[in-house]
Structures are given as structure tokens and as C-alpha cells.
Design a protein around this nucleic acid. Sequence first.
DNA 1: GGACTAATGGAAACCGGTGTCAGTGACAAG
DNA 2: CTTGTCACTGACACCGGTTTCCATTAGTCC
Lengths: 338, 338
Amino acid sequence: MKKTGQATINDVARLAGVSKKTVSRVINRSPLLNDETRDRVEKVIAEIGYVPNPQARALALRRNFLIGLIHDNPNPHMVLNVQQGLLEVLRDTEFELIVHPVDRGAPTMLDDIKRFVERQRPFGVMLLPPISDNDSLAALCRDNGVRYVRMGSAQFDEPLHMVASNDREVVCSAVGHLIEAGHRRIGLVLGPHGFRSALERRRGYEDALDRADITLQRTLVAQGDYTFESGMRAAERLLDLSPRPTAVFCSNDAMAAGVLHTARQRGLDVPRDLSIVGFDDTSIASHLWPPLTTVRWPIATMARAAALKLIGEDDEDSGESLFVSTLIRRASVAAPLE
Amino acid sequence: MKKTGQATINDVARLAGVSKKTVSRVINRSPLLNDETRDRVEKVIAEIGYVPNPQARALALRRNFLIGLIHDNPNPHMVLNVQQGLLEVLRDTEFELIVHPVDRGAPTMLDDIKRFVERQRPFGVMLLPPISDNDSLAALCRDNGVRYVRMGSAQFDEPLHMVASNDREVVCSAVGHLIEAGHRRIGLVLGPHGFRSALERRRGYEDALDRADITLQRTLVAQGDYTFESGMRAAERLLDLSPRPTAVFCSNDAMAAGVLHTARQRGLDVPRDLSIVGFDDTSIASHLWPPLTTVRWPIATMARAAALKLIGEDDEDSGESLFVSTLIRRASVAAPLE
DNA sequence: GGACTAATGGAAACCGGTGTCAGTGACAAG
DNA sequence: CTTGTCACTGACACCGGTTTCCATTAGTCC
């Protein structure tokens, strides 16, 4: 009103003829307030369009309302799903979401995260794979009094600090699905080194072979890095084998799409000549031709659960922390020809 | 050190035997400082790991270092690209990015944005299409002294507040490409109502037909909403026509993928029986079979430019604001059969 | 040597909120 | 009438920085 800037609590107090503190009480819905006073103050607030300054509030309360999303995840589908899940919960609160991706592979990555946490001191942070694996990050948060929740492919922290999926089991059943269809020579396209998810999914693959008494063949395992191109390269190697694998399990959909691409370049028909199973159920999976059989894990649901853990009361039950993935059967799996 | 909390400027001042102000001068690199004093203070800062509190700073400076990303955009590819572009610039600054997606279609959408801007009062906000079209949002920012940059498919604000692509022209040349290949019956899958981009791309289509003296046929224009499924539905309608269109321009890649899907379901060969052109050059475009001819627009580059406009000095040249898109020729276009 | 100036550092106020604690008036109990 | 309790309100300090303004010191000139 007087100056061009935003109205402050002082303006409200002056205009309503009360003290700052009383205005503060109105804002914070203190119960020991005379209705008449409250109305008067509220009227002034509405009149001049007063909005409390979150920075001042943060300073006085010695806490803020920021949630950080820290990740070095290369999968846009996943990152966006997580964001949506988190924001669904945060939308109706006074929390805001700060996204802080870091450079995977950069030597300054840990310093970067450290700087972010120590400067911003968010109320909580969400750690996405693969860095969520890193125990020193969890320690960093603890040391700075910042809440954290880690997202991962296996339970490797307390429930309060973790949302996990059961990758190993579901991959075991996905590969089991291929075995049931009659496949014995089943290729595996691995995720990159250092990803816990890659490890868990490999284990699931091994479990399934074990259970069916199929000997693991190293040549059937190809390295990938979760990109489409790495899927193509892996397929080139696997499809050169003789005898050729009749099916391939890929640790994510992007690589599965790459395998499909290469198979088609070579004139193979999917699923007749080659069955393919992916992982993630990204939108690409159902849009490919043929639609891809894949594993769906409830990313958004996990993110919502994580958000609740992050902003929940200390003494509250922290809610679910283990989430089950399911096999989505589409058209990229058939019985082998031979 | 003494209390469990973070070290403050007072601790540094006490330990270094100087006043707060001197510490503040060191932090802000004031030139009027004795080198010896500066070294002493810096040593203490390093020792106790002092990090200035951004909230306190924001309060004292009467400005913060927050950039908001406001959008109701349903395209994850685009949103993530924008985020990356923005963060590339913000990474080396003291700015943080707050993402604030809003519910498209919700009646409270404008209120939601208003609340965000008035509460948080970010230093600047980036507005993504389609809400970037909305002039009242720009006004809201201006009224609150919040910088803004709008992203769009046509220049509809001053360069300082705008990064735009030349959708109309590039679509004209993309459709021209189809015409040169010999197509005359070219379908159009529209973007949703209310999207400026949908309008611009339609105009580009019309321009191309005009230029080649082809009469626009309403039946060849199908409504879509930028989703894969809407692409499928549009294709069902277009491919039922007799004579069938020999080519289709789709206002984005997702719908092009849907058209491709439906064409394949009907046993049509792409590109032999049907040529398809998309728009966006999302990752799906190159991963489809056949790889999709499409339009690439420099989203990340535009976002970087926007970030520079947002955090740049007032008097600075605001940099480029018009960005050109290019046609990426892949394998989904061929000459018509007949 | 005294006066003036520039360089440097500190005290105190301020940014816009919240916490602590004391003070007011109304009313019931003693 | 005093006292205690209750419901409500305000004065004041404080959060952790920056800004304003003044004090001190050192250096320069005459």
C-alpha cells in the first residue's frame, strides 16, 4: 500500500490496530483468539492481500518448507514420474519441490550434493537411484539434520528412509514366464555397473535359471547401460551367437526397444523368432510394435509414499516401504520356433 | 561447533575476532578489505564449515534466488528438456529451480499459480506452453515484480520475455517436403484446442497447401490431443477415407507413433502405403520402426536462453529470442504408390 | 605538528516473521 | 474486597544475514 513492495505483517498489525504477534496468531490459527479480533485481522489481510513471507518464516522457525529431489538418473520417464508422485502429495501443503539433478560421472558430484544440502538445508530430500545406493549421502543428510528417503531396487535402509521395489523377485518371475513358454536359451541385457537395480535384476535372472536347472551361460549375458543404443549393440552381439538365443530379458525398456530395433533390421520377426521382455513399462513399451511384455513398477506410488515419509510427523507410522512390481503381458513373447 | 545447529556468521565473527560486517564483506568479496583480515576470516570459515543461510540472506537482501518453472504441459519429454536446459545455466549460480506443475483443466489453476507467485515471490519464472499463452499470467508476474520468460511457438511478447520457435514456417516446409515427394492427399492430425502450437502448426500446414495450390479438405484434418491414443483414433478416421490420404503430418511425435501403430494394425506398410511426419524429435521418433521423419526444435537451447534472460542483468542484451527448428529426414517418408 | 583524507572495522538498526513472558480485564471463589 | 483463574493480547528479543553510519587508524599535505 504505502511502498510498492509486498505488504508485511507490520502493515496488517497497524491497519488492524493489533500487534504483530496477534496477526501471527491469526495466520497460524491459534485457538486462543477472540473471534472478533480474528475477523478484524482477517478482513485487513484480505483487503491488502497480505501473504506471509516464507523466507522470514523459515528464518524465525529455524526450518524451511523445501523438499529436494536429488538424482543422477538418466531415465526421464522415471524422473518425471517421481516428480509427479512427490508433487501430488506436496501440492496441498506449504512445501515446495526443488529439483537438483547432478552430473553422473563428474568428479565433483558429491561436492555438488554436499553444497546443495549444506546451503539450502531443505527439510527433506529424496534420493533417486543410482546415487541412492550411496551410503555416504545418507550420512550427509543425517549429519545435517535433513530428512531423507532413498528409492531403490532393494531394501537397504530402514523403512523410514526407504521406498523399495522387489526387482529381484519380479525379474525371476518374468524370466520364469519365458521359461514356461518353452525358452531355454535366454539372453540377458544387463544394466550398467554400479547400479543396484542392474545387480538385482541380474540376480533375478539367475534365480529363474537356477530354479529351472538351466546352466548360466556367460555368452548370453551382454552389458548395457540403459540406453537404446546399448540395447542395439547388445543385440548385435547376442544375435550373432550360434545357436541364437530365442528370448532376451532386458533390464529396461529402452534397451528392449534397441534389441527390437536390431532384430528387425536383421529381418527377424518378434516374437516369432525372438521373444523380448523389458522392464519399467515406460510409455514406449506399449507403443512399440509389437507391444512389449515388460515389468511395471509403481514409481509414482512409491514417490507419494516417499513424500509422506518426508513430511510426516516424527512419531507417525512411516507407511509402506516395500512395493511390488508386476509383469505386464503384451505381445512380444511367444513360444520358441524349434 | 558449540550448538548442534549450523554455524552462523556470528560464530565466525567471534572466532575470527572481527565483527559480523567484516565477515559479510569477506563473503561478498568487498574490495575494501585488508588481505590479512580476509585470510583470517576465510580460515575460520573453512575450519568450522560455515555456510551462509540463504533464507536470512533472502530476507536481508529483499530478494531470493529462486527460479520457478510453471507449466501444465503434458509432454514429459519437453518438460524434462526444459528443466535440463534451465539447470545447465543455473548450476553454476546460486539459483535453485522450483518446479511447479499445475493441473491443466482444474478451475483452480490460475489461483494455484497466483498463490505460488505471491507466496514464494521467486526471482523469476519460466512459463511453458500452453499456459505461457495466457497474458494474465504475464501480468501477474509483472504486478508482483517477478521476472518471467514465456516459451512458445510464436513470438507473442517482447524478446526479453520470450523464447519462441518458428513452428509455422518449419511445418510449412515439412509438409512441403511431402508435397515434393509427390503427395497431394495429405492428412493433418491437429493438436488440442487452446494450444498455440497446435494453431501455428495448422497454419504451417495450410501455408504449404496454399503454396502448392492444393485445396484444403476438411475431411483430411483430424483432431488430436498430443497423446498416442488420440493419434490412433485420428488414424482410424483418416485411413477409413476413400481415397485414403497417402501421407499424414502429425502435430507431435506421440500422435505420429499412434498413427504408425494403427497403420500397422491395418497391415499398411510405412512408408510405402503411408508416409508420416511428426514433430518434436522426441527419443521415440528415432526408435520407432521405421525411424520417423520429424521436426526438431531446440528445446534445451531455448531453455538455456530463457534462464539467461531470467537471471541476467537488467541492462544486459537479452540474447536470442527466436529459434529455428529443422526437419529431420528419416525413413517414414516415401513417394506415394499411385 | 596539525588538519585533512582514505582505508578499514564495528555498533546498531533493519528485513519479516515467531517465541517467551508478562500484563490486562472479566469473572468466580473465598 | 481480595485473590486466583482464565482468556486474550502485546512488548520485546531473536532468527542470520545486510546496510547505514560512525569511529578509528594511517597516510598525506602544508
